[in-house]
Design a protein around this nucleic acid. Structure first.
Lengths: 219, 219
DNA sequence: TGCATAAGAGAGCGGTGCTCTTGCTTTTGA
DNA sequence: TCAAAAGCAAGAGCACCGCTCTCTTATGCA
């Protein structure tokens, strides 16, 4: 069982998600293909296991990176989260693609099993905004944002996450979240021409600086 | 031949890229599977055709949107590009996923056939930064950015694109480019919880406002 | 000792990409 | 005009895939 996920991760890393084959995994384990169905049920279920596995590993990487940054260093925590996600994504591009790339056709991750580990990164980010807000370390302290419909969505986020940060800060936080993964996806998926950006690490550090500014962190 | 691409686009839209099957296309055309190989060569070549098709359609959509915005309205041009990409992506999610999602396993788009149409959007964006720079309509007019290695990459972009915009503006332009597609990918791929963001259109408009600010467009 | 359960083997169904050969039809050119 | 050439489709076949079903063997336990 544990072996199936292990071999599955290897195949995912070398061949990608859509090429994931239960038969090939069975071969690697010295089993006949039907034998693995006793443990996994279906190919989609294996994908779900790998999705959860990936979210957990990414969440662990982020948490570990956060461990060495002072709680009051809000900008540093954002940068640490960004670096941790990028480093993990470059190390595990296939798993990253499974989590944040195109949905696998015909496969829908079961929300009840994946939303928990799947929201670890955004929850850490939200905590950074909230802590910065409480410490007065953000320049975005205005009132509600327009239009009212957007303000209602942001109020829902505020309630569900149990935070007090104002509309503008939450909205910018969502943008920074999406922008961060946009930058990383572009790099991992090769959207930057490989011959134009030769030092993606330097570019990413600059992008982190701008993202810190976008969310208005003053320290 | 044209029919194959047409049916292929239908299958792509309904079933996704990895589920694209030459046999199914042949069935829809009333042909036997081997017959379509006279025209397409391989499944990967069909994917390439669909990639080029998608880039062209996206580029056309962007160009059409730009047609109704004054050249001097730099912020408006950025917003128009963003809206056009988002609208097209939501209308053709499978093709969008093929272009900007996870790479299809075992498939590498031939650069010599796809880089032309594939860079239409970023070229339009770069033109916005450059025009704003020439018109003095951006607040980012500083000198070279650090570190020097990044500055060298940006100088290469400046040379290859035939522009004169300063380092900081180009770097922020790249970030805005990646952030824009990050926001759209999150929405198209369902990374926002469907029950938290009920009005993605409003959120996107707000994000565009912040991106205009990020690249420092003053008009 | 007897039996229920677990674990794997094997055959088989329909699907896939792709290749090769065969045959028919249309076009071309001397 | 008529044969050669090219275009086009069919069909068989190979190896792979997900998945189901039945059968056999091994194990643990009362």
């Amino acid at each position: 069982m544990r072996d199936i996920v292990r071999i599955g991760r290897q195949h995912l890393a070398t061949d990608g998600a859509a090429a994931l084959s239960l038969r090939a995994i069975a071969r690697d384990l010295g089993l006949v293909s039907s034998a693995v169905y006793r443990y996994v049920g279906s190919r989609d279920e294996l994908l779900t296991l790998l999705v959860i596995d990936g979210y957990d590993e990414l969440g662990d990487a982020v948490d570990e990176a956060l461990g060495s940054v002072a709680a009051a260093n809000h900008a540093g925590r954002l940068r640490a989260i960004g670096r941790a996600v990028r480093t993990w994504a470059l190390a595990e591009p296939a798993t990253y693609a499974l989590l944040f790339g195109s949905p696998v056709p015909g496969y829908q991750a079961p929300a009840e099993r994946t939303t928990g580990p799947g929201t670890r990164v955004i929850r850490r980010l939200v905590q950074v905004w909230e802590d910065a807000w409480l410490a007065g370390a953000t320049s975005h302290d205005g009132g509600p944002v327009s239009p009212r419909r957007l303000s209602r969505d942001l109020a829902r986020i505020r309630r569900e996450q149990g935070i007090t940060a104002p509309d503008e800060l939450i909205a910018r936080g969502v943008l920074v979240w999406a922008a961060l993964f946009g930058c990383i996806s572009f790099e991992v998926f090769g959207q930057y021409g490989a011959d134009t950006i030769t030092q993606p690490q330097d570019l990413f550090e600059h992008q982190l600086t701008v993202l810190v500014e976008t969310v208005g962190l003053t320290r």
